[in-house]
Simulated assay, not measured.
Amino acid sequence: MVHEVRGVVAKAKGQPVSIETVLVPDPGPGEALVRVQACGVCHTDLHYREGGINDEFPFLLGHEAAGTVEAVGEGVTEVAPGDYVILNWRAVCGQCRACLRGRPWYCFNTHNAGQKMTLADGTELSPALGIGAFAEKTLVAAGQCTKVDPQADPAAAGLLGCGVMAGIGAAINTGGVTRGDSVAVIGCGGVGDAAIAGARLAGAARIIAVDVDDRKLEWARGFGATHTVNSAETDPVEAIRELTGGFGADVVIEAVGRPETYEQAFYARDLAGTVVLVGVPTPEMRIELPLLEVFGRGGALKSSWYGDCLPSRDFPMLIDLYRQGRLDLDAFVTEKIGLDDVEAAFDKMHSGDVLRSVVIL
């Protein structure tokens, strides 16, 4: 059986998205059919539309999603029809060298559904991050479904599928923030604010938010920032040092993905401190640092892949914290919209008017 659904498709580089009829096949071996309930509008979706990921157009956009499993294919045991799930884009294989060394969050062989969703004329679609959830139903690998508490609001829960998990994980999993640490976060969009929330969850004593927009800095305070720095008005490196006794922060999280902000992060950390890059750079970007400084400051320079998360471990835990009132996922949801409003949501993202627009299906 083939399911006809409405979906948001990017047909060509830089062109506005359109609503198209998408044909979704029944799940085959190892696959799951998911009825999408909500999906966040992430900057990665805009990267796809702009050709910043690859040129495998047309793309079925959307990937920060929660929904209900409708059907599963042969051999699927992880989930069953009726399960409420968050979708993830790292279905671990269990067999690669990272998995076999007990580090599945670094899985080098993550996988997606084998069958293709198509347009009505048979044109194969490339689903964003192997998910394609700006649609009423989508087909994924069963390992991309993580079962969580069904009482969690899908608009909030789905955000763990990408940006919020990336930020929280950058602080807790990659950065190793712990009780009493000082933390600076450069860039206070959705991922940066999630890193702030993660630092607060981990017990950081001082959390310094850095951005050029006072409105975003005010949002950052709501997620747990104890201090804010407008880097359009103040040297952020000097400000972070001043707020940390002249030493620099124990952990600095760069959530912008630009050479100049990465350099700020490098010099704003304490000796033996950690820099975490979670902002996504573009291919042409380069950075130059004195090698003696890299050596002399010690510590660690890390990149955070998806918050170094293991969805089966982290999603249920974070949903439990949300249900307990200890993690305010609702605060990330700026507006709830329909499928027809995705293009307008991209415009709001550009202007910095939203943390997350969330499509409700």
Rank of each mutant, 00 (worst) to 15 (best):
P81C: 00
D250F: 00
R215H: 08
P16R: 13
L301T: 04
Y106F: 10
L310C: 04
G246D: 12
V237D: 08
K348C: 03
E238H: 07
A249I: 03
H43R: 15
V191D: 06
F247W: 13
M349R: 03
N230F: 12
N109T: 06
V79I: 12
W105F: 07
R241Q: 13
A32P: 07
G352A: 05
C145T: 09
L329G: 01
T228C: 05
V333L: 05
Q264P: 02
V148G: 01
I19C: 09
E254M: 02
V92R: 12
D308T: 10
G14F: 02
N88Q: 11
H350D: 07
G167L: 14
P127E: 14
V9E: 06
M285Y: 07
A255K: 01
A204M: 00
Q37I: 06
D153T: 04
L289F: 11
G62V: 14
T228K: 04
D347G: 08
P127Q: 05
P150T: 09
K216M: 10
P150R: 13
A12H: 11
R241F: 09
G245Y: 08
R269T: 07
T118V: 04
V229A: 01
P311W: 01
A195Q: 02
P316H: 07
G198P: 04
D214R: 13
V251Y: 03
A91V: 01
L329V: 03
T146L: 05
D121I: 03
L339D: 09
L289N: 05
L217K: 07
N112Q: 11
V278E: 02
W219G: 02
A209S: 01
G307F: 10
G161K: 05
